[in-house]
Amino acid sequence: MEIRRQTVGITAGHAGQPPTQVDAYTMDTGADLAVTVWTYGASLVEVQVPDRDGVVDNVVLRLPELASYESRRSNPYLGSVMGRFCRAVRDGRFRLDGVEHELATNEAGQHIHGGPLGFDRYVWTADAARDGDELQLRLRLDSPDGAQGYPGAVTAECRYRVSGDGTLVFDYRATTTASTIVSLTNHAFWNLSRASTVDDHVLAVRADRAVVFDDDFVPQAGPPPPVANSGLDHRRARQLGGAALDNCFVLDDATGPAAELTDPATGRVMSVHTDQPTLGVYTGDHYAALPRGGICLTAGAMPDAPNRPAYPSARLDPGGLYRQRTVHRFGVC
């Protein structure tokens, strides 16, 4: 087992952060899993796993160089950590303790995935070490009070943990100096095959309900409806085919995997386990560079949770600790 570090470039910089060096960390178990993360956006760049014949490939979409990651046109959050609040906040506004907060908007008047300068646009500090039989990369980002309109100074951590049994763990933590909202997730596009699309992949999602969105990706009124007798019913594994998915599935059952993705051609299987209330599933239909080239499985809070009292709260108070843990397990069939 080893950890390798190399510099990949220096960012162009923006109003929130000057030009900053970006490093790549590769955690190589020497067995069936090697993971590369860049400090820009705490981005997951490579996950190397074998297929049923022992052929090793990268199963997440990646870009060729740092400049491509910095470009919003070429980089739709590819592999990045999204925050301070992933998913949508309606009209970029929410109330907390009677005070209305106005967030920066970035899509159709909505606040999406942390805004135009979300956590994905920053270089995180990092340190890596071996911890027993696993390798760990800890990344940290300090977000000042008022960043993108959010109250409170937030310190966020993302810990990638890799072990030789084919397990990749995303472990998120955050603290705040004032009451705020937090939900972090990783926006990797997964493709377990060597094909150009994920149409032949088979997906199972352990969810009886899914959020229905309007045209601005804001949840419609009312509770999430059942998936039964709809195109969103993946309770039994079925092939994606040409189905376009961009939905948030409600994880009412905390036991077992939230989802399982299989590529019959290579035999690769990836199961997703999480402690979060929802799993976002997006088949990448609007990714201009490679439509349907990968599928996102993003665990996190309910969309627009700050404005929906019936949804689980995304609130974080001083003295509290935000925790989120999502586990990806790789194997073959």
Rank of each mutant, 00 (worst) to 15 (best):
A221L: 15
L137Q: 14
D285M: 03
V89D: 08
Q6D: 15
R52V: 09
T298R: 02
V332K: 02
G164H: 14
P264H: 08
L117G: 04
V81L: 07
D165R: 07
G13Y: 13
S163E: 07
L184H: 02
Q239P: 00
Q324H: 15
P76E: 11
R209T: 13
G98I: 01
C296Q: 03
A244L: 06
S196K: 12
R159S: 11
P144I: 06
D200N: 13
V269Y: 03
P225I: 06
L321R: 10
P306A: 03
D57L: 10
A254E: 14
D57K: 13
A204G: 07
P64H: 09
G222F: 05
S68W: 14
A258V: 11
R90H: 15
P309K: 04
T197P: 07
G242S: 15
G152F: 02
C296P: 01
I10Q: 13
A12C: 08
S193M: 04
D233V: 01
R323S: 11
D133R: 15
T262K: 01
D127M: 09
S163L: 07
G256D: 14
F217Y: 13
Y311G: 00
P318A: 04
G118W: 04
G79I: 12
R93C: 11
L297S: 04
P306F: 10
G222Y: 09
A34Y: 04
A24Q: 14
R323M: 01
P76M: 06
W124E: 02
V81C: 15
L321F: 08
Q148L: 00
V8W: 06
R130C: 10
T26R: 04
P312T: 07
R62Q: 14
V45M: 05
S196G: 04
P303H: 00
A289W: 10
G319R: 01
V154P: 03
R159M: 12
V281E: 01
E46A: 10
V56Y: 12
L240V: 05
C296K: 00
R84P: 01
S313A: 15
A126H: 03
A289Q: 15
N247I: 00
S163F: 08
A104V: 10
Y311Q: 03
D51Q: 12
E102A: 13
T36D: 01
P219Q: 07
G319K: 04
E70R: 10
I181A: 13
G114W: 08
